[in-house]
Structure formats: C-alpha cells, structure tokens
Computed example of a mutant assay.
Amino acid sequence: MSARLGSVHRYPVKSARGERLDEASVEPWGLAGDRRWMVVDSDGLALTAREVHPLLLLHPEITAAGLRVQAPGAEPLDVAVPDPDRQVPVRLWRSELTAAHAEEADAWLGEVLGRPARLVHLDDPTRRPVSAEYAAPDDRVSFADGYPLLVTTTASLAALNDVVLKRSQGTHEPLPMTRFRPNVVVDGVPAWAEDDWRRVRIGGVDFRAVKGCARCVITTLDPGTAEGGKEPIASLARIRRWDGATWFGTNLVPDLPDGRPVTIREGDAVEVLEAVEPGAGPIRPVR
C-alpha cells in the first residue's frame, strides 16, 4: 500500500472541537482557518483545554461572516470577524502579540465556561514567529501550540492501541485519532515512521519535519465528554518516553516558495523526501 493522506483536520478555535475536511488550503502558517481564533482570560493569557476542560465541548464552525459556536445547553453564538483595529495584547506560551477582540462573545463564553473569558481573532498570522530553535527566521504560525501543522499516522495509532488494550486486558476502548488533534493523518506507512521524516511531500506541498510532539493532559480527555483518564499517557510512557516526556506525532512547517496557498486533498500521495535511519525516536530538544 502506498502512502496516502488519510484525512485532513482543522480546529477553528484553539482547544475546541475540530472538523474533518475533504480538502484544505495550506498557508505558510498552517491550514486555512486553523486556530485563527482563541479564548483568553481577562489578562489576555491563552485558555486551553489543559486547564479549562469544557473548551473541548465547544463546536465551532467557520461561516461567511465569521464563526458560529455551539455548546451543550446553550444557544448557538454567531460572531463576526472583529475589526482588526480592535487589537488587545495576548500571550500564548512564550509568544506575546496582539489579536482582534470579538467583544460580543465574552458574556456567552463566560456562561459556558464558568469563568471570565474573551474571544480573539488572529487577523494577521505574520505576527507570530515559530520557535527559532526548530524553524527558519521567517516561519510563522497561527494560534497552534507551536508549529503550523501536526502529522500523525494510522499505523502509529494502531500500535499504541495494541498497548492500551493489552495493559487494560481488553477493557479499554481503542483510542480515536481525535485525542491527538492532528491536521494531517497518513495511511500506508509503518508505525512510528513519522519520527524519521525530515522532509515530506503531501500532494503538491513540501514540508519540513521540525520537531516531535510531546503530549499533554489534553490527550487523556474524552473529546466527547471532556472527562479525564490515564490513557494514552500511561501507555505512551511505556513505549514512547524520552527526555521526561511522552511523544506522538511530528510537527511540520510548509515550504511554499511564493507564499501562495496550495490545496491538499484526502487521498493525495505522500512522499518522504528525506529521512534519517529509524531508531532515534522523535525529533527532540538537544540537551
């Protein structure tokens, strides 16, 4: 079986529910519409599902005017793309930048999340550079954690689920890929092959594989209920532990020579252009 793009996913609001797409445009900072919105607290600090689990239950959809967000027990919220002149300071990990404030969402979010919250829109993704440790000086990223795209593979999930099922003696349900919130999922490659990739072509786009993805508590939350558990971190700690972290998936940076978006589609061919010898594990920080 040749390597193919098995599925494409985007997440309109950081930490909220994603959507599967038949195709998506790859922009220099990620898939079009991916994580251009984010929820922050009253000080502009990013709120994520790590600490605010109900964010996972928000169901956002991109509309012609902006965004529609649904949540259990609440009326849907329609939000227009805010005026880019309404900038407020925001902070996401080590990134400090500004984003446009959609004030009409504040009260609704506060009710749904049970805490003060504001919705912001990244009108200009060129404001946020990718970590210089792993990327080129002109690389940019949306409100994703650190890199424009995340790739996972179906074979790696199957290998992980084998361990989960053995550890639980068959009592644990197989984990869905939605736990890991990838943008692109590749079929037809061996388990953990993505660890070794350094350059890969998906459809008509070349990507640099720049860093493995260390996994956090969000993967232990059921995307449908936001309830927590021990998996997959417990099993990853058995088979995928390096440098005090557990790893699943690889971060990608697109190389678009003229900066223009290029569309990728489910079923596109995947070609590994450059790889290292297997066995070293994911690309990790140099200690």
Rank of each mutant, 00 (worst) to 15 (best):
S131I: 15
S131N: 14
S131V: 15
S131G: 13
A132R: 11
A132C: 10
A132S: 13
A132N: 08
A132G: 07
E133S: 08
E133L: 12
E133P: 12
Y134H: 11
Y134I: 15
A135N: 05
A135Q: 03
A135D: 08
A135E: 02
P137V: 08
P137M: 06
P137S: 08
D138S: 04
D138L: 08
D138R: 03
D138I: 09
D138N: 03
D138H: 11
D139Y: 08
R140Y: 08
R140C: 07
R140W: 09
R140D: 07
R140A: 02
V141I: 12
V141H: 01
S142R: 02
S142L: 12
F143Y: 03
A144K: 00
A144L: 09
A144C: 11
A144H: 05
D145E: 06
D145H: 05
G146N: 03
G146P: 03
G146M: 03
G146Y: 07
G146Q: 04
Y147M: 02
Y147K: 06
Y147F: 13
P148H: 01
P148R: 02
P148G: 07
P148N: 00
P148A: 10
L149A: 05
L149S: 01
L149W: 08
L149N: 03
L150P: 06
L150V: 05
L150C: 06
L150M: 13
V151E: 06
V151I: 04
V151W: 00
T153N: 00
T153R: 00
T153A: 03
T154W: 10
T154K: 02
A155H: 06
A155S: 01
A155W: 01
A155K: 01
S156A: 07
L157P: 02
L157F: 10
L157C: 02
L157A: 01
A158C: 05
A158P: 09
A158K: 09
A158N: 01
A159V: 10
A159T: 05
A159I: 08
L160I: 10
L160A: 05
L160Q: 09
L160R: 00
N161V: 01
N161P: 00
N161R: 07
N161D: 02
D162P: 07
D162A: 14
V163W: 15
V163F: 14
V163E: 07
V163D: 02
V164G: 06
V164P: 01
V164H: 03
L165K: 09
K166P: 14
K166M: 14
K166V: 15
K166D: 15
K166F: 15
R167E: 15
R167Y: 14
R167G: 09
S168W: 13
S168D: 10
S168A: 11
Q169P: 08
Q169G: 10
Q169N: 12
G170Y: 09
G170D: 06
T171N: 05
T171S: 13
T171E: 09
E173K: 04
P174Y: 01
P174W: 06
P174V: 01
P174H: 07
P174K: 05
L175E: 04
L175C: 05
P176W: 11
P176A: 07
